[in-house]
Design a protein around this nucleic acid. Sequence first.
DNA 1: GGTAGACCTGGACGC
DNA 2: GCGTCCAGGTCTACC
Length: 293
Amino acid sequence: MKIALSAQPPFYLPSVVRSHGWIQLSPFLADDHTGGFTYLIQLDTGRVAEIRIQEAQGGVSVAVDSPLTPKEQSEVSSKVAWMLGLDQEFGTFYALAHDEPKLAHIVSEARGRILRSATLFEDVIKTILTTNTLWSATIRMNRNLVEQFGASLPADPARIAFPSPERLAATDEETLRSSTRLGYRAPYILELAHRVASSDLDLEGYKTADIPTLELRKHLMAIKGVGPYAAANLLMLLGHYDFIPVDSWALKMVSHEWYNDEPVGKAQVEAAFERWGQWKGLAYWLWSWSYNG
DNA sequence: GGTAGACCTGGACGC
DNA sequence: GCGTCCAGGTCTACC
């Protein structure tokens, strides 16, 4: 079956897909042919479905591998709309960026939306898996988590959804350390799964909560394993762009762009984008860097 | 509030 | 094949 969803213009699906590395993390799978992707989604009922997303007139079309009940259709629609930020609007930022050559490309490419997972739980875990490690290790740890704890697609057991909080909460730290190879992150992931599964932490509520950025940041940083970088990354996913996710890459880019390759710190990165105010994270994210080494 | 050292993995490198 | 070093953010203890 197919579901059609409309997007706030301008919208260009490949720009969302390529917005960051999430597309390389299972259960995302890029479809280079169409510029879209497939994803394994676990619905509230526990059912796993494969969805294939392609650009369509005014938005996207979502092909689902099997028939859904009306309630399941509604859940798929709202989750896909969230993943792609279909209702997001960037007119104010585009107007501000109009005269900045380093951001000249963003309007024609409809940049701004950042690909999200179906749940914030999945995005928090993936963000923790990006910290203090190489990207190749992030891909591996995430793949291990999915393969070891995710629920399979009934028609093809090799296709697996991201693990639910309940499933992860049912495992133990030693398994996550030695078998899933999460290392010191294991207790962080386990604690998060316990808190979400027991409803002690309503992560999904943050998607729609009307909370000031600073307060939201405080909540995110109360999660073990989430520091300033991870919180800024998650805030961007939640549509708050007041903070820059400063990592070693950011330091290298800013050093080359404005400091003649001299070492810089977090303060210099912040200063470089201060003039973008509440949009500074997005300006940083979409900047056309001159570094090509 | 700022800082040093520990945390853990896997890749690169030297032998 | 083995040992050592290094990169990558966050946490905790300490000042």
